[in-house]
Structures are given as structure tokens and as C-alpha cells.
Design a protein around this nucleic acid. Structure first.
Length: 790
RNA sequence: GCGCCAGUGGCGGAAUGGUAGACGCGCUGGUCUUAGGAACCAGUGGGCAACCGUGGGGGUUCGAGUCCCUCCUGGCGCACCA
């Protein structure tokens, strides 16, 4: 569709009530969508529910309800709340990820992924959140802690389902460059996360043994300076040289020591430097990451800080291969190679090229690109999620179900006792007879990470009623991508990376023409609020705080309140205001207006009483103006110019999402019209109302209907004739020697030589140029004149 | 440590390299009234002035908040990534 605009805000988790962050997100999107509609576009603006997830299970246990009932009730509640925000949403596209009509197709996609090798099962060390009792993806572990619970994540060896996001690592990183309408910041974060680095893999042989260790490096040029090898504690080859208990005790020692301290354990084996033939020691070292490269490094202490620290501590030889003085060690810059045979005299880049050629020729190594990004673990040991359509036979083998066997429905009758995954105990649901083999089998009890649900919802929106397949490719090709995606920066990596991966995978499986889901990304700022604490140090709700005798006091207890800094609104710090209350007290128009006042939408907005009050005053003024009978002056040409200029600015400001400036334009407009008592019972009045409509839809609609006995929806955004805005007379700024002195009234398109004599006779100018000679006249036509005197 | 972004009145913030501070909040004085979450009018960067002012210091330019270099401060992200 040529004229379509797919505008989308990140869909909410149905927690039961919307918060101010939602309000800001959806109001920004709504203003933009309504504006685009007035501009003549066909708008796709859907809304749905990210409805699977842990809070439903926790609530079910706490309140003795069922996750399904709890979630559906919340959806209803939140839908009602959203309806009070005057949002123009395509409710006929609504979907909830917990709905069988959604997740059965997710199961279908999984089957496709599996058949394409994009989904696989693997036994590996995974992140285990002991509080939520589930596995977490790498992206969900922040500083070693679970992203939701804050609990220290443990490493557990489990057999888990993975999506092969690494298959797209290269494309995910490269096509970031095409996303020119994404915030640079988000792209940088994704780039860092993917962590592409070009280098090579070198094979180190072990002495008296046929074993080999593969080592990835970006600095093969320093190979002649390699004086040891270090392995991660989880490296497989260790088991050959020391027993399991020893490994465990070393691991425990590693865990105990300070993060930055480097410690190692020397193995009873030597390795051979493949280019020098020297025997070098092999260590287990705590600073070697098992999740990067092959979990093994060669140490070149002279030219790497970490290796240097380690070598000093364990008195290992430090061999220079780049020319530098001893004081500069470790020397990590570019330089001239020494002690490196055929590399001597070369600079770093040349040396790398040479050595890689050599290694490849001698079959000692290969060029290799390495990524930090690892495959996405999607198994979750939780009930309230999309079941993974797999069965296990008694012999331990498994079969991914056929599409015809779908959906695997989540059973409703379960016991939520808070101990383990309830699906494990549902033997009726779990035990099946395989329809293909007739063998007894058990269902997979893990469910998908809920980020899987949100990785394709924007596609399903476009064909949400399709009961045969996930989507119709023709429709998707016509309507994707999302033209504008609006949401919080907190999803910079997780959701946005997964959604990009899914889009590419679906493209390859279903022959879609779209490679990137979100053409333009807008990350809105958070809403902050002052924090309050009482004498006990407990947080106090803003609504419970008042000013008495110039002091803040808690209303309920009359205690003194200590005001803290403004921080992101959060339930835990109680610095929240309830949208429902605000709308009740100030009305939806003022609430919408405040969401875009005071700060640009991509920056944080501080919630203040004065701020929302100011927005309320604005809506009062607008209402008063349109209902007053004293505004009767026919707009002059100057009036019209001024007003059209405001409308013109609004146009630009909304299209750039500079919505704080859009509000400023509205103030400027009404300041002017009130002063001039401009009559607006005419075409101009209609245009003004249309330009206010995206912000105040129902309020302006009412005024429009009353004033013009007409329907505002029939109209388009007014096009302003730019040539009409051009002023005939201007106040031209005059500078002497680059400094502003005065302005000079003149017609546009003046000839500088015609007005020059007048200029130098202005008294302020005359003063400045006394006893000086003209050097140069600089005229920027209709902008400024700068006269240089000496 | 590395990377990115930002620093402008009392505050939030405006300024395609061309009159810094639009607009709003707050504040000061005044008007009016069936005292309100009002409304209206005037003023509001500093300084009596000449002038001085966009974190500090350099530079480019006729002209710099804007571009370049450097330093300082704050925020965010990454952080033993071989």
C-alpha cells in the first residue's frame, strides 16, 4: 500500500493498570497517527497485549486466582483505561499473545525454525534465576543478576531449546547501517552486543599428545611473543589432565577472588607455539571467558595488559615482538615488528596479513570472524507461556510435532502452589501417545521466553484473524515494515534485537520482502517524579504529601517529609501518580497536553503539579476562546500571516515529533488571537481547529461541531502557502564588525547600496564607526548586514 | 578503562553558522470579582551604565550556543570480548 503508515507503540504487559509511562508512549503515538491521518495517509495503528509472563503466575499464587483469568480481567481493565485516553486505535486488529489463536501460530513458526535448523536443543551451561526458578537468556542477565528479580544468577547445566540468532549475527550487525532513522545510541548498543571482531583461529598442539587447542585472536601478529596459553575453567580439555573434584575446587577459588585479580593454575602439560616451536606452559585462568571465542587464549605479555599482569604475577617470560622501550610495557599500540622472523620490520596490519597467510598455508590456522552474540535460549521452566510443541519418548529421544498436531494448548486445570513448574505435575496433559509411532511419550513442559511472543506480534497484527496460518505473505509484503515504532529505550537490545532476528528468519522461511521490522524507531523518555520519605525512612506517595507552613508534611500522619531527587516513577519508591486520578481531576485533554509539554518526547519528563496545572489552564483558555462572543475582529492580512505561520510550524514540529514545540506553537497562537480578538467563525477557524485536533481529539471535535455544524473528520491538514508567509517588510539586523548594533526596517529584496547611506546615519551606527573607514560590506540577503570598519 | 550523549536565566526548555533565552513554569507589581486549581494587564538573564553573558581554555569565520581541538562536570551504555 503506497499511502500507508504503520504506526506502532510497544504493546503493554497487562498488569492490571496503565501507568504514566504508557500514557506518554501512547499519547505521543496517537498524536502522530492522527496527524498522519489528517495528512491523507491510511493509518495502521493497532494495539494488543503482551499477555504471557511471570507476574500472572505470581499473582495467581498470591491471590488464589488463575493466571488466565487474572490476565483476561486485566486486559479488560486496561482496555477501559486506554479508552479514557482518546486513542485512535485499530481495535479490530487486537491480539493477546496468551490467546490460542496467537500462540498456535508461534508453535508453527517454531516448527519452521526447527526444520530450517534455526531452533535446536542443546545441553549447556545456562543462567538460572533461583528466585523465578527459571532459565534466563544472556540478554536478561545484567551484572550477573536476573533482570527482574535482581537475584544472583547461577550457572546450571541443562538441556534447553535455542534459537540460532547467531546465524544472522553478521546481517544483524551490517544492516544496522541501513537503519538511518534509528537513534544512534540504540544502534551502538546493538553493535556492541553483537560484538563482531575479525581475527583468526590458531591451532596449538599439546606436547606428547595429539590434542589440539583452538584459539581465537585478533592479534595473530603477536604470536611470536606468545609465552603461555590460558584456558577457561569450563574448557573441555581440562578433564583430560585433572580430575573433576580438582576442577570444582579451582572453580570455587576463582569465584571467591576479587573480580579484577588474575589468578591461574598451571596444568601438567606443555603446549607448542606453532610458529616458534617453543614449549610454553598451559594455565587455567580466571580471566579467560568461556563464552567468548573458544574459551582459550595465547598470552603475549609484552603487548596485552591482561597477559602482562598475569605474566608478572606468575613470573612468565615477557618477549617483545613490537619495537618499544621497556618502560612502555605492555605496549599495545601499532609499531614495528621485531623478534618475529619473516614479520620483522612490518607494521601491525601488514604483519597480520602476512602471518594469517602463513598460518593458512601451513594449516596452522584460519581467518575467522568471531561474535560476542550467542544463541538465544528460549526455554522457560514456567507455566504461563506458549508451550513448545515437542514430545519425548521413553528412550530420551524427542520429536517436534507436525503442524497438523497443533495447537498444543496450555491446560487450564493446574495446581499453582508456587513449587516448580505446574506443567510437570499435569500428568494427564503431559502423557501422550505419539500419533505417528503409537509410542508413549511426554510433552515438553518448558514454555517459550515471552520475548518470543513479542518478536512477531507486529506482523500478526496485520493479519490477526487468519485462522489457517501465522500470516498471509501477500498482506505482510504489502503492509510491513512498521513505519514508526515508539517505545522505551529499555528494549534497546532485548526486544529490538529479537524482533529483527525474527523478521529476517521469517523472511527466509516465508519469502517475505521485508528485512527490517522497524523503519524508524523513536525512544521516548521516562517520566520522573520527586521522591518522598518520612521520618522512618519509608517512601511516601506524592498524593500523601502537602505543603504546610512552607514545609512538606505527610498528610496521613502529619510527619515531616524529606524530599529526594526526581527519579523514574516506580512502585517501589512510590513516586507515582495514577493516570486514572489525573484524568479524573484534570481531564483527558490536559493530561494529553502535559505528556508532551515541558520536555522533548525523547527526554525524560518530570511530573510536577505546576506542569499539569499549566496544561489544564491551556485547555481552559482554548475552551474559553472558542465560546467567547467578543472575538469578532476579522483577521487582517498580518493576522493571517501570523496564524498561518503558527500552523505551518505545527506541521513541521509534529512531523519531527518535536511535540514540546507543537505545544509552544499553540500557546503562541492563542496569545496572539486573544490579544487581537481574532474572529474564527470562518475557514481560518476551521484550519486552526484541525491543527489542534491531533492533540485534543474529542475536545476539539465537540467545538468544531458546535461552531461549524460539520464533521471534522472530513477535513485534511491545511496546506499553508509558503509564499504567503513571506513578509514584505522586515526588521533587518545590522552588525558592525560582527557585533549586533540595531535593526533597520526595510522592504525585502532591498539593494544594499540603496540603503547603505541610511544605515551609517543611524545614530547607534554612527557612534560605532566614528573615525573609521569602511573595509567590507557583508550582506546576507534579507537575513543580516554586517559592516566591517577599521 | 572504552564508547556515546549532554552542559544555555531561579527552573523546564527554544534557536537551517546570522538579533541567544521562543514557549511554559516560577517570581514582582497592579486590575477585577458571587475568593478561583481563577482570569486579565505590565515586568522579569546580569549590570546604574558603557557593556557582559550559552561549563573552562584555544582555534576556524565578516559572524560561533551551533563547526574543529583540548580540558572539566554530569548522565547512559559496555566493561578482563583475547
Amino acid at each position: 500500500m503506497k499511502n500507508k503508515k504503520y504506526i506502532l507503540e510497544m504493546f503493554p504487559y497487562p498488569s492490571g493498570s496503565i501507568h504514566m509511562g504508557h500514557v506518554r508512549n501512547y499519547v505521543i503515538g496517537d498524536i502522530f497517527a492522527r496527524y498522519q491521518k489528517l495528512k491523507g495517509f491510511e493509518i495502521i495503528h493497532p494495539m494488543g497485549w503482551d499477555a504471557f509472563g511471570l507476574p500472572a503466575e505470581n499473582a495467581a499464587i498470591e491471590y488464589k486466582t488463575h493466571p488466565h483469568d487474572w490476565t483476561l480481567k486485566n486486559i479488560e481493565l486496561m482496555k477501559n483505561q486506554l479508552s479514557t485516553l482518546d486513542l485512535n486505535l485499530d481495535w479490530d486488529r487486537e491480539l493477546a499473545t496468551c490467546d490460542k489463536n496467537y500462540y498456535q501460530f508461534q508453535q508453527e513458526i517454531f516448527i519452521d525454525f526447527f526444520n530450517k535448523g534455526l531452533a535446536y536443543k542443546k545441553n549447556s551451561l545456562v543462567n538460572w534465576d533461583p528466585v523465578d526458578q527459571t532459565v534466563l537468556a544472556n540478554e536478561q542477565v545484567i551484572d550477573g543478576k536476573g533482570w527482574r528479580t535482581g537475584a544472583v544468577v547461577e550457572q546450571k547445566e541443562l538441556s534447553q531449546w535455542f534459537f540460532k540468532i547467531s546465524h544472522y549475527a553478521d546481517e544483524l550487525e551490517e544492516s544496522l547501517d541501513d537503519l538511518d532513522k534509528w537513534p544512534e545510541k540504540v544502534k551502538v548498543m546493538q553493535k556492541n552486543w553483537i560484538g563482531k571482531s575479525a581475527g583468526c583461529e590458531i591451532v596449538f598442539k599439546l606436547e606428547k599428545n595429539d590434542d589440539e587447542i583452538n584459539i581465537f585472536t585478533t592479534r595473530p601478529d603477536t604470536i611470536f611473543g606468545a609465552t603461555f596459553i590460558a584456558l577457561s575453567i569450563n574448557h573441555e580439555i581440562l578433564r583430560k589432565f585433572i580430575d573433576k573434584n580438582k576442577i570444582e575446587s579451582i572453580k570455587a577459588e576463582f569465584n571467591k577472588c576479587d573480580d579484577k585479580e588474575k589468578i591461574g593454575y598451571e596444568l601438567p602439560i606443555k603446549s607448542i607455539n606453532p610458529v616458534t616451536g617453543e614449549k610454553i606452559p598451559v594455565y587455567i585462568a580466571n580471566f579467560v571467558l568461556d563464552t567468548y571465542g573458544q574459551g582459550a587464549i595465547f598470552g603475549c605479555p609484552a603487548h596485552d595488559e591482561r597477559d602482562y599482569d598475569f605474566a608478572v604475577k606468575y613470573k612468565l617470560p615477557i618477549k617483545k615482538v613490537l619495537d618499544c622501550s621497556d618502560e612502555d610495557l605492555p605496549f599495545t599500540d601499532d609499531g614495528i615488528m621485531i623478534n618475529s622472523k619473516f614479520l620483522d620490520g612490518l607494521k601491525k596490519d601488514q604483519a597480520i596479513e602476512e602471518i594469517v597467510n602463513y598460518l593458512e598455508k601451513e594449516k596452522l590456522g584460519n581467518k575467522k570472524v568471531n561474535y560476542k552474540l550467542r544463541d538465544w535460549g528460549v526455554s522457560r521452566q514456567r507455566y504461563w507461556g506458549c508451550p513448545i510443541p515437542v514430545i519425548y519418548y521413553e528412550d530420551g529421544s524427542f520429536r517436534v510435532l507436525d503442524k497438523e498436531e497443533l495447537p498444543v494448548e496450555l491446560p487450564y486445570d493446574i495446581k499453582m502452589d508456587g513449587k516448580g513448574n505446574p506443567l510437570l505435575k499435569e500428568s494427564d496433559w503431559r502423557s501422550v501417545i505419539c500419533s505417528k509411532t503409537g509410542k508413549k511419550a511426554l510433552r515438553e513442559t518448558d514454555t517459550f521466553d515471552t520475548f518470543v511472543d513479542s518478536s512477531w506480534y507486529f506482523i500478526r497484527f496485520l493479519d490477526n484473524k487468519n485462522s489457517k496460518k501465522p500470516f498471509d505473505r501477500e498482506i505482510i509484503n504489502k503492509l510491513m515494515p512498521v513505519d514508526k515504532y515508539i517505545g522505551g529505550i529499555e528494549h534497546a537490545i532485548l526486544h529490538l534485537l529479537y524482533a529483527r532476528f525474527f523478521t529476517k528468519a521469517l523472511r527466509d522461511i516465508y519469502k517475505l520482502e521485508v528485512s527490517e521490522p522497524f523503519k524508524e524507531l523513536f525512544t521516548q523518555g521516562m517520566i520522573t517524579h520527586k521522591t518522598y520519605k518520612n521520618g522512618n525512612g519509608s517512601w511516601v506517595l506524592p498524593i500523601d504529601v502537602a505543603i504546610k507552613n512552607n514545609e512538606l508534611v505527610q498528610i496521613s500522619t502529619n510527619e515531616k517529609i524529606i524530599e529526594g531527587p526526581s527519579e523514574k516513577m516506580s512502585k517501589s519508591k512510590k513516586n507515582v501518580v495514577d493516570p486514572e486520578e489525573i484524568i479524573k481531576n484534570y481531564g483527558v485533554s490536559a493530561t494529553r497536553a502535559f505528556m508532551i509539554s515541558d520536555s522533548p518526547p525523547d527526554r525524560d519528563l518530570e511530573w510536577t503539579d505546576a506542569g499539569i496545572q499549566s496544561s489544564k489552564n491551556l485547555t481552559n483558555r482554548i475552551e474559553r476562546f472558542f465560546s467567547s462572543d467578543t472575538n469578532t475582529k476579522n483577521p487582517t492580512e498580518d493576522d493571517q500571516k501570523f496564524i498561518y505561520k503558527c500552523l505551518y510550524d505545527m506541521d513541521n514540529n509534529i512531523s519531527n515529533l518535536s511535540l514540546n514545540k507543537y505545544i509552544a506553537n499553540i500557546f503562541t497562537l492563542f496569545n496572539y488571537m486573544e490579544k487581537n480578538q481574532t474572529d474564527i467563525h470562518n475557514g481560518l477557524g476551521k484550519k486552526i481547529l484541525i491543527c489542534l485536533y491531533p492533540l485534543f481529539p474529542s475536545f476539539i471535535d465537540k467545538i468544531f461541531t458546535q461552531l461549524f455544524k460539520d464533521k471534522i473528520e472530513k477535513y485534511n491538514w491545511p496546506e499553508v502557502d509558503k509564499s504567503f508567509l513571506k513578509e514584505k517588510n522586515i526588521d533587518l539586523p545590522i552588525q558592525i564588525n560582527g557585533k549586533f548594533v540595531t535593526t533597520y526596517k526595510t522592504q525585502i529584496d532591498y539593494e544594499i547600496n540603496d540603503i547603505y547611506d541610511n544605515l551609517i546615519n543611524i545614530s547607534k551606527v554612527k557612534e560605532k564607526i566614528k573615525n573609521k573607514k569602511l573595509v567590507k560590506k557583508i550582506n546576507v540577503q534579507n537575513k543580516i548586514i554586517n559592516l566591517i570598519f577599521n
